[in-house]
């Protein structure tokens, strides 16, 4: 009974759009944020790639690669406009890069009013759910021509253990395994969305699994991308207007005044390495060498989980922690401070 009711409801509220297939909305959504990138070509790096528009003033998320190493990286937005590109941040370990579009003729000018996707949650995906990947594999599209889309099924989450051209691939974190073939030149860096058209990940680089020795289609979960963007925009400059950045900006440890003890990319326990004097964490009583075991009522066994839970918390609310200090469990509350 219930599914029928739902269907009727939707028929009544259906969009007037001529969506003859159930994917039109999501496809248009992902195509609208897919950027074509052109840059350095070296070896098997083909000199073109894909990226995702993530802020209204032209921040572009993509994979970290040789493509953006040149001095003349260019980006073409879905409307066909050509931009120059500055690198805001890149992270070799996570293989992520954040770029800023610049007006090709006026390097100071940034674009305005760019529409971004709602950020979804990769945690809400279940195995068997449809996902849609967009990008510009093989440089098929040119100028304002829409990006290619591929429909796939979300297979599950896995920790990546892969190599790229006989070298260890540094990213060892969780990935979303999909069956759409995205392991193609030019495809990495494109958006992965659910059927709602909400961003759930970014198509990962072409890598070979150390277990199966096959190329392996995957995406980096959006939570990891969001945390990277948040860190990147915070570190980068004062010039970025915080309010302008979209929801992708999540709370990161640095914002609370703590630095965690991190070694390699294996899952490590959430040990506090340093606490900034005068920070909100310091005021809450957090100290170096504390082991954080719970955040917001949830167990946090490793840094990745801690950052993920933290990234979803509301900046305006109290943050509840439990730390272990000298075999003693100590609950702490970090109180937010009004923005200065």
């Amino acid at each position: 009974m219930m599914p029928q009711l739902v269907t009727v409801m939707l028929l009544l509220t259906a969009q007037p759009a001529k969506s003859s297939n159930g994917f039109s909305h999501a496809i248009k959504s992902v195509q609208a944020v897919t950027v074509k990138l052109y840059g350095l070509s070296a070896g098997s790096q083909q000199g073109y790639g894909s990226g995702i528009l993530v802020s209204s003033d032209g921040l572009v998320l993509t994979v970290d690669s040789i493509l953006i190493d040149g001095s003349n990286t260019r980006a073409v937005t879905p409307d066909g406009a050509l931009y120059a590109v500055d690198i805001i941040a890149r992270n070799r370990e996570e293989q992520l890069a954040l770029l800023q579009l610049r007006d090709a003729s006026d390097p100071q000018a940034k674009p305005e009013g760019i529409i971004c996707l709602n950020v979804g949650s990769s945690d809400e995906l279940s195995s068997g759910d449809w996902v849609i990947a967009a990008g510009n594999p093989f440089k098929v599209a040119d100028g304002a021509e829409p990006a290619s889309v591929a429909l796939g099924i979300f297979g599950g989450r896995s920790n990546l253990d892969a190599q790229r051209r006989k070298q260890d691939y540094p990213y060892r974190g969780p990935v979303l395994v999909i069956d759409a073939v995205t392991s193609n030149p030019g495809a990495p860096g494109g958006p992965l969305a659910d059927l709602e058209g909400e961003l759930v990940g970014m198509v990962g680089r072409v890598v070979v699994s150390n277990t199966t020795h096959t190329q392996f289609n995957h995406a980096i979960p959006i939570e990891i991308c969001s945390a990277f963007i948040a860190r990147a925009t915070q570190q980068s400059t004062d010039g970025l207007d915080q309010a302008d950045l979209n929801d992708a900006r999540a709370i990161v440890p640095a914002e609370l005044g703590i630095k965690l003890f991190q070694m390699g990319y294996k899952k490590s326990l959430v040990f506090v390495d340093r606490v900034k004097r005068g920070s909100v964490a310091f005021k809450a009583g957090l100290r170096a060498d504390d082991l954080i075991v719970s955040l917001d009522g949830r167990g946090v066994a490793d840094i990745r989980t801690f950052e993920k839970v933290l990234s979803r918390l509301d900046r305006a609310k109290d943050i509840e922690l439990i730390v272990i200090r000298k075999e003693e469990h100590i609950p702490l509350t970090i109180k937010p401070e009004p923005a200065q």
């Binding site: 739902v6 003859s20 159930g22 949830r298 989980t305």
Partner: peptide, 25 residues
């Protein structure tokens, strides 16, 4: 410690908007 969220009605809705005759959805 990934938390399984129950899929809310809104999500379920969008999945049934699709036309059964199209074959994939």
């Amino acid at each position: 410690s990934l938390i399984k969220h129950t899929r809310c009605l809104a999500v379920l809705c969008s999945w049934t908007t699709v036309l059964p005759c199209v074959g994939l959805q």
